[in-house]
Design a protein around this nucleic acid. Sequence first.
DNA 1: TCTCGATGTATCGTCTCGATACATCGGGAC
DNA 2: GTCCCGATGTATCGAGACGATACATCGAGA
Lengths: 201, 201
Amino acid sequence: MLEFAILGLLHQSPMHGYELRKQLSEVLGGLRSISYGSLYPALKRMHAAGLISTDEPDPRALLPADAPPLTGRRGKVVYTITAEGKERFHELVGQTGPEAYDDGGLFGVRLAFFRHTEADVRLRILEGRRRTVERQREGLRASLARTRERVDRYTLELQRHGLESVDREVRWLSELIETERRQSVAEEPPPGPRPSAPPPP
Amino acid sequence: MLEFAILGLLHQSPMHGYELRKQLSEVLGGLRSISYGSLYPALKRMHAAGLISTDEPDPRALLPADAPPLTGRRGKVVYTITAEGKERFHELVGQTGPEAYDDGGLFGVRLAFFRHTEADVRLRILEGRRRTVERQREGLRASLARTRERVDRYTLELQRHGLESVDREVRWLSELIETERRQSVAEEPPPGPRPSAPPPP
DNA sequence: TCTCGATGTATCGTCTCGATACATCGGGAC
DNA sequence: GTCCCGATGTATCGAGACGATACATCGAGA
């Protein structure tokens, strides 16, 4: 998830880690934000994988491994996406399997970068997410019906509120899908019955 | 959080790990459930701390550390809360500081065990949670106002939906608080102006 | 001048998760 | 009867996320 988000942000312009973090929490809908303990290791991994490059070669690479922690003068590092990174991003952007929407966090990031996503992929992701959340809703409903008599008022309230939230999310997704469909028929008049292929696993 | 939930469940009756997990996801409102990778280490920690006891002494304790993984016959383990564990639970149940409500997960567990919680503590936790969520809401509002013009339709939708969710949570909490207040005045007629003490840090 | 908050990079220990392995048991298919 | 499957049940592994923390720079205002 972090990898996708970082590539997406750097796709727009090079950035510092700090700036990356700020943009990230804004893009994520303002609720969850990423910690440095996740961000910097992720950047390191991606740098090692060749997906991003830094403007400043690491001075410690020349020093012995047991050198002191290099106090003083710690330079800013600007991260830039590489050609490989762009390729990777477009590969990820095309994925429509369950991994794209089963996790709410990743789905949020996918949505935030929908402007880089093909219309049919957008639709498949939204529909997949709706299926996932609908399944959650059914589970919740069953649980509520099963335990209704056995649990106290507070647990009941918790379950009721959870169910309502999930319900609202389904409706929200349905509206997005509706809008998406209207737009797609407006742009591209259908040449016949659509042979909608099932998403790859 | 796990510690609190486990103590709360075992407070009612002894249980297997498996049963614990099922009850846990039901109590948590059916949405998030705990994985074994969290549950068993937590049980081990709590056993080491003397908060819970097992009905079956670990046979591997007698074997050398490098013995083979003990294939075959792995007995069921029933966990029981100890006197120390009950003490710890009542200690935790009385906490009203930010640690009780800043994290949504822990707050959910606290709510699920409200029947073991004093009325004034319940009220303080609900009000604390509302303050926390209200702060989140203000942050979200500010973010939305700030980025309104600069982001695309999808990000906007994400933020809008997030804001609505937080808003609904505030209203839900307000209803719970309202109910709680009505109940408390019904049970205990106030003997004068209430000297509401600030919660300890 | 002094301090404070924003900007900025980085690591540590602790915890959590998803995946997986392995074992037992009851019940339905055949 | 037996064979297989899903529920029950205990347990560990590696990847990685998190909160806390350390350290450094810089501009604004007391």
